[in-house]
Design a protein around this nucleic acid. Structure first.
Lengths: 206, 206
DNA sequence: CTTGTTTACTAAACAGTGTTCAGTATGTTT
DNA sequence: AAACATACTGAACACTGTTTAGTAAACAAG
């Protein structure tokens, strides 16, 4: 009898429904303004029901975060058709920033808000989504080393340096720390600083 | 009669009391776990009283943020005794990261949490604290240009690039996005990536 | 078909949040 | 002493995340 299998499917379907509802509300209203009650109302269930499928709000955040990583990976896919490893690296950075600007709420949950990381801490789990994405970057850096464009010993250290730079731009921008610059200067400053970083890498990392 | 002057002083004293209380609680318990009621209790006043001195919670956050900037500037002061402009720049970055690690809650309020920036948006004020600190960095970059260490047209663009890198490290670390690395590797990765960035600048920015 | 048991769900409550407002008590002025 | 202004607060409002006791439906066994 496939009853327990069906129940398992239904349970999975319900989790999906909650995560989808949550994601929609996050994207529409911003993560800070979404409550469990809002999510419950959106999917037409009682707030208590949500707690039968998720331990707490952080766990929902984590589920949305994981889904968002899938979306970002999708948008990274076309990069791997680029032959030149350095151009591939530059395009990867560009897409990271683009993803952040186009999906600020998702980016927030993925890389800035601490709440989803809390679920990892109780289980002593590793942050696999982050690990996978970072490994992708390390791979591209290693390709740059093989091609003789970079001359560094530790590809992970170089990857960390690059990630920090790109992430710094986006984090400062999204968290409104470029408010001291007038609107149009902000955009110019970001793209110019990014270009300068790429040039500096090409000249400096060999 | 100096009555209104005294009242003005008392008012200022009360604001100071609230900000001090708030800062203490933020540092002790983390900004997210501190409520207006907690602050009120700590200074032995009713929650409603706080609203006679601050428009809302964001305004308290902003006041704490401003005070924290003063503290950081203090810790930047010794830098200006360093003769070599590049070394001065490196030391500035090092102290930015050090301040973040030693005062995570204050750094959060200064550079990551959006709440204090909200008070700037209603008044169309510029973020003067950020502007001043950034100008300091621009100045050091300009010194590097004058000394012939850097060869870039726009010192602000270079400063932005440098700030992004340093801030990226700290933001990723504080917001627990280096959880995919084992404890000891985290520390090594951060310092090595910082060193690599400094080396890359020296080679690449000329 | 009727039991008993498990499952899925929810109303209501708990303890908290930021914020507002009517009311009081004190200080100042006339 | 009366009138007014200031400083403060208790209580409320509309929320928040989360738990619990209780209900109704789905299923299993006799």
């Amino acid at each position: 009898m496939g009853i327990i299998e069906r129940k398992e499917r239904e349970r999975e379907e319900m989790r999906r429904l909650i995560v989808e509802g949550a994601r929609h509300l996050f994207v529409a209203n911003g993560y800070e303004k979404v409550s469990i009650r809002n999510i419950a109302e959106a999917i037409e269930y009682s707030p208590a029901t949500i707690y039968l499928y998720f331990k707490d709000k952080n766990e929902i955040l984590y589920a949305v975060h994981s889904q968002a990583f899938g979306k970002m990976m999708e948008e990274f896919r076309p990069i791997f058709t680029i032959d030149d490893p350095f151009e591939r690296l530059v395009e990867m950075g560009r897409r990271y920033m683009l993803f952040a600007v186009e999906n600020p709420e998702l980016f927030d949950i993925m890389f800035i808000v601490t709440a989803p990381m809390e679920t990892l801490e109780c289980r002593e789990d590793i942050w696999s989504e982050g690990r996978i994405a970072f490994n992708m970057l390390v791979q591209v850096v290693q390709d740059c080393i093989k091609a003789g464009i970079f001359k560094v010993e530790d590809a992970e250290v170089a990857a960390m340096m690059i990630w920090s730079n790109i992430h710094g731009h986006t984090a400062l921008f999204l968290r409104k720390r470029m408010m001291m610059f007038p609107e149009e200067r902000r955009q110019v400053l970001m793209t110019e600083a990014f270009t300068l970083f790429c040039d500096t890498m090409k000249k400096g990392l060999n």
